[in-house]
Simulated scan of single mutants.
Amino acid sequence: MKRALSLAAATVTLAAVAITYAVTATADPSAAGVELDTSRPGQLLFLDAAGRVAAVPADDPGAARTVGDLHCRRFHSSGGTAVCLVAEVRGGLPGTSALILDSGLRETNRLNLAGIPSRARVSPSGRMVAWTVFVTGETYNATGFSTWTGILDTRTGYPIVNIETIPLYLDRRRHHAADVNVWGVTFAADDNRFYATVSTQGRTYLVEGDYRKWEARSLRADVECPSLSPDGRRLVFKKRVSSSADGAWRLHVLDLATMRETPLAETVSVDDQVQWLSDELVAYAKPGAAGGSDIWAVPADGSGSPRLLISSASSPSGFEVTRQPVGATT
């Protein structure tokens, strides 16, 4: 059987929690987030230092922020749908609730999962939602970490809690292994094609998945936490360039037609799934003061230099990717 059976008894119990997920719904108009007008275009949404969903104008991210009362560990939004990952403890074990939200940040579905929140992503249309949780370990730098990644089709309401059993082809050969991990899903505009990271036998791979056919194939090695550009032609990802904790990853952009990769001007290690703000600009969280994080931006062609967008913040996203200029703070 798979890796979970080789873990300690507590982790096996944790697995049972993940499998017995629940989907619920609420139409409470007083749900969290009512302070935010997410229907207004040209906003950047993010989590503040307290984990609350907040918004600033995309063309003036240094302006006063509007803060809601919804708290998340990870957050992402697109196409009128948002996902909020909430860390919980159930029976002494870590758990995650994946809250599926509408454009007013009102809860429409909830999935109770195992593990610690790690990644969250919504497709451009808002139909498909993905999440990743750590079921062992709390960082991608940890040895022996294990992730479970799920996908929810909001139109059908059907969730796949752990996608690591998807038929996988590495170098065109069907791959079977007990150590497969999948994380960092990003969706194409057709709500069928998706990209993700797969690790197995000590290596990481970028894979392209087909949701309807339910299969995935490798495209290249050494790609982690991909994020697809609005034009669907490029992926920004983190590439491991060092085995040390400092400087472990460097952001790169991959041209999917030529498979040419370009290092970005950010040289500090970034452990995040990057958000495209436009076809030319990407945003990401990196360590800030007092153990927190700030949101920075950098051009997607390797030029320029990083610039601070929003201090004391993480999980940048927006219900519609803006194509207007994005300002910067100093």
Results as ranks from 00 to 15, higher is better:
D171G: 15
R172V: 12
R174T: 14
H176Y: 13
H176C: 08
A177Y: 07
D179F: 03
D179V: 01
D179C: 03
V180Q: 00
V180G: 01
N181M: 07
N181D: 08
V182M: 11
V182W: 04
V182Y: 03
W183S: 09
G184P: 09
T186L: 08
F187S: 09
A188C: 09
A188K: 06
A188D: 11
A189V: 14
D191A: 14
N192A: 14
R193K: 13
R193H: 14
R193W: 12
R193Q: 14
F194S: 05
Y195I: 08
Y195W: 10
T197Q: 09
V198A: 06
S199T: 15
S199A: 12
S199G: 11
S199N: 08
G202Y: 10
G202F: 12
G202M: 12
Y205E: 02
Y205V: 11
E208R: 15
E208D: 08
G209Q: 03
D210R: 05
Y211S: 10
R212L: 14
E215L: 13
A216P: 04
R217H: 13
S218T: 09
S218Q: 02
S218V: 06
A221K: 15
A221F: 13
V223H: 08
E224M: 15
E224W: 13
P226I: 00
S229Q: 01
S229C: 07
S229L: 07
P230Q: 04
P230W: 08
P230M: 04
D231S: 01
D231W: 02
R233L: 14
L235T: 01
F237T: 02
F237V: 05
F237N: 06
K238G: 07
K238R: 13
K238D: 03
K239R: 14
R240K: 10
R240M: 10
S242R: 03
S243H: 06
D246P: 05
D246M: 08
A248R: 06
W249I: 02
V253H: 00
V253L: 01
L254E: 00
L256W: 00
A257F: 00
M259C: 04
R260L: 02
R260V: 06
E261Q: 13
T262E: 02
P263H: 07
T267S: 15
T267N: 13
V270L: 04
V270Y: 06
D271N: 15
D272W: 12
D272Y: 11
V274I: 15
V274Y: 08
L277F: 15
S278Y: 10
E280N: 07
L281F: 06
L281K: 00
A283W: 02
A283E: 01
Y284V: 05
A285Q: 01
A285P: 06
K286D: 01
K286T: 07
